[in-house]
Amino acid sequence: MKRLTTAALAAIAFLTAGGAAVADYPERPVTVIVPWSAGGGTDATGRIIATMLEERLGQPFNVVNRTGGGGIVGHTAIKDAEPDGYTIGIITTELSMYDAVGSADLTHEDYSLVALYNADPSAVFVKADSDFQTIEDLADAVRTDPQAIQASGANFGGVNHLSWVSMVQGLGLDGGQSNWVPTEGGAPALQLLASGAIDVAVVQFPEAQALLEAGEIRALATLGNEPNPRHPDVPPINEALGVDFAIAGWRGLGGPEGMPEDVVAALTDAMEDILASDSFRSQMGQLNYGVVWAGGADFADYLENRAEAFGAAISSAGIGQ
């Protein structure tokens, strides 16, 4: 009992000493908010990042899942945190969309941007026994009657939906004519595809990997400008159809706006070191996530670009406000 109290007092003294000084950031444990639940890609990559930051900066980086509301809750929590560098978070694709969709008053300008570490385009999948052998077959069918092709991949207005809308738009049609079946995420959409209830699934490669290898589904095209390194034979969409694409899911590290510059710099340096390391690349590679680096100002430019591309797709789909 006595020892416990002493320990408590010692801990209180230790925690108080943390204070506001930033000279030797970090001086106490850092909370890393992940706006998505455990089990998803953001959580998995976020935990890798947190572990590696911990190794480099010598203080615990505690991952905290603040889930719900399509990421709004977690992103808001990061934005509203004390900008002292002791609460940071993983920010994701949805941040490029909230404002255009009108679901939340959040943009990348509300954050101190540390670094982009991942970006992955979606891909188009069909069932193994589908009549569509190539992406051209599918494109022809969509041109004939966009309503006849039922596509799914996640929620209405999500990144996969916008990718599909952008593709339909790229074919010279009105993006709003596409037929999107909303589901809660990639997994249920793949389930729908495998059960034969829909024609097309637009999801990312890691989610579809196992079904692909099981021969249940086929990949027709990558919705990006370069082939996926693990699937070099799946043509990128600009090669196959000449449609240029700027929509991709991304993940980065950020904190509330107004973090001290030296703290942001310390984190950006650590992130640069992490992204250059073999262990990070091999872990991301195992999980099939692409590693993309953009630090500080580059990250801001990148997000500026995304905001425009997403905004265009959203207004074309008629979901904006």
């Binding site: 709004i72 809750v73 939340a104 929620n155 809660e184």
Partner: peptide, 20 residues
């Protein structure tokens, strides 16, 4: 909370905690 399919907030009355 937020309708996961349509992205529409329901019965949240403007509270961000309820959106989740």
């Amino acid at each position: 909370g937020l309708d996961p399919l349509m992205g529409q907030p329901r019965f949240t009355f403007g509270f961000s905690e309820l959106v989740g």
